[in-house]
Design a protein around this nucleic acid. Structure first.
Lengths: 233, 233, 233, 233
DNA sequence: AATGAATGAGCTTTCATTCAT
DNA sequence: TATGAATGAAAGCTCATTCAT
């Protein structure tokens, strides 16, 4: 039984330690205002040492994103595994998201920067990573939606479109909440959304009138609609 | 009949010209990567001239935000004024938003940076401006929702909460769309959302079962729920 | 009889107006911190107009120096003319100096800058102007000292050396007073100096002992002593 | 026996090296004309390195002042310690000053800039430092004067006032000498001054007449006279 | 003569990165 | 592996000066 961790294990442990410290600095100051020196100081190590573990600042930033998203994804996966019926699963996914977001509300600006970074970076690696993660998450959502339909709890809806929509909505509410100064309960906002989405806003009278049209829309979704990009003039 | 524009008019025209150029540079490179020199070059003026019209880079960035948001808000207001019944109004708001977002999709990263900037800036001016704008927009949405209810088209719903939710959803879908590489029609995504929100996803069977509970939730909204912020540990 | 001043007179009047304004700005902010814009603002004229009257900033600074020194010199000359016996003249010179310095204490840093400027300027014009002024002043002092000696009020002293010494002492006391935060009466400091210089500090006993040696020193002065400059090593 | 200098020692050595180089640049070009690049070039180091040792240009300038004044003060203190009777001490102080000033004549403009800087700087740190130094120096002079009086070599004179006067005179003569292009011997000027101050200029006849009045003035000094500052009108 | 918009060289300062130890 | 002194490119901002009106 080894008394000390082997070298590679130590290395990985230190990488994690660095990322866990860096996330706080990046989140509170932003990518540009966060200095490598700040991070080194927070770790009580020398600036040069950071470069032994990450090739450069961007690499470290990417590491932070990965670390954070892995955490989120893992907790989402766990939520799925811990429940069996789709209703519980749906609830668990929302709970997990709310908990994660509430816990990491202070990292919210980071999320924005990740996205901005990804949309602008010359290399696609950042963007690809975000999309992959989103794909996995939307598969989760899609799965649950499909099960709901199978149980006749959900109407006939393109579950893929729905899952993508849900992801957007989720991020949008979170953003809104952060910009609003976290002045209300994120959980309640999510629940309110759930009610709206689940039950709809139309009165029964109206609902019946538009039933056929809505039915079709929901069934087809929006992901496979043709789209012509319009250029700015 | 004035022969030449008066000085102040010229000044304002030049401010607008600068902002219109700056927006493109900021959007494509990002706040930090965009250099004042780049902007000056794009305008074929000297760097120093920029400082005759904006006190510093941040001021110019704020100018860009204002310019852009004023455009959006104005078109939303116009959409409201051009229609009289709430259903048309709701459609018009969505149309306007979709058009605006589609037209300015390339400026999307800017939106993220505005938000990140606002959340981190020492001065509140940025955040306040965003909130004010959101408030005005949500009032528009709230108004429409109230009219819908008055006409018995909408169920009893806290229209304020609903309007806030809508804003978040709207931004969220846009973001999602941008990150997804604009691979589907934003308009269709918005319509899909409209169907989901209007009609709900539940089957009639389930719907009836949870009717009372949902009713209450929608009526109360989420804005005035008590909220205890949880600290990260 | 002309109703308006002729053009050249107007021009001169404006030059004076500019200088009188500039002196306050230069004095309070220093040469470098004082901006041409500040001066233009204080005059409520356009920046460009300054350049119609002075070729550049340095020229204006020189103008300020000239204006100020002319004022001082003129009042010294007047003091001399208003009195006839050397004792009154000596008193008047001191009075005038004290009054001038007290009145313009806030311009003291300017004096330092003039000197520093002169010692460093590539062109000698500044230094020459200062030396000329000092020469005229020391002639005044020298004259008075000579008259004192003629009246047997002063011992045999090289009046030229004495006048140069006096100038240095005068500036030195003023500087000291300014740096000391003007915490005592400049006039009293000058009077104290006068007593020291007039009557000496030695007791009669010691005085007699060194009489011959001192006598010689005073008679010869220091201006024509040989001097080998030592270079910094 | 240490083989290598410890880090802090090296650091201090480098700070001194920088200051010793900076002093020459500042002196010859002036604070504003002296560029950080010039100083770095003179040291054959990178500009950035300067900022590892001094927070900014002003800090470096302050360092130069401190370095220089410490040198002067230390040599004055040494002069005091090396002699025992007040007459020798007085001579030694003058000798030291003359030597110091002659050796550093080329730094004279710096002294003016230090003073100008101090009188205008928003922070008092510069001014306080100058005053403290002057206070220590005037204590030296005051001490000597008191001893002279105890030995009945000096008349009854307020030694504090006298010491302050002496400092002013000393600086004034130096300034005068520099502005006069160092065209005479500074040492002789100081000696001449010593004769004047020691023995006075009045003839015995006049001296006796004003004896009582002068006596009083010298005894009282000028430091504690009431003073009403006159404002410029 | 007066203006003030435009200029652009030139400054201080920062900080990611390197590399000899 | 860890260090941290040294680097130097790069950027925002200033402001004396110009010149078309």
């Amino acid at each position: 039984m080894a008394r000390t961790k082997s070298a590679p294990e130590n290395r990985e442990a230190k990488r994690v330690l660095i990322v866990e410290t860096a996330i706080g600095i990046f989140a509170s100051k932003g990518y540009h205002a966060a200095k490598m020196q700040d991070i080194a100081d927070a770790l009580s190590i020398a600036k040069g040492t950071l470069y032994e573990y990450y090739t450069d600042k961007e690499d470290l930033f990417l590491g932070v994103y990965d670390y954070w998203m892995d955490l989120y994804e893992a907790s989402m996966m766990r939520a799925m595994e811990d429940h069996f019926d789709p209703v519980s699963k749906a609830d668990a996914l929302i709970d997990t998201t709310v908990e994660f977001y509430e816990k990491h509300a202070k990292y919210a600006p980071l999320l924005l920067e990740f996205w901005a970074h990804a949309l602008r970076s010359t290399s696609d690696s950042f963007l690809i990573r975000i999309r992959d993660m989103k794909k996995r998450l939307s598969q989760l959502g899609s799965e649950v939606a499909t099960q709901m339909q199978a149980l006749k709890l959900f109407r006939n809806v393109d579950s893929e479109s729905f899952a993508v929509l849900e992801l957007g909505i989720s991020d949008g509410i979170f953003l809104q909440w952060v910009i609003d100064g976290q002045s209300y309960s994120l959980r309640e906002a999510y629940k309110f959304r759930q009610s709206v989405i689940g039950s709809g806003l139309m009165t029964d009278t109206l609902r019946k009138l538009v039933a056929a049209k809505v039915e079709k829309k929901l069934r087809l979704g929006f992901l496979h609609t043709s789209f012509v990009r319009k250029e700015d003039t």
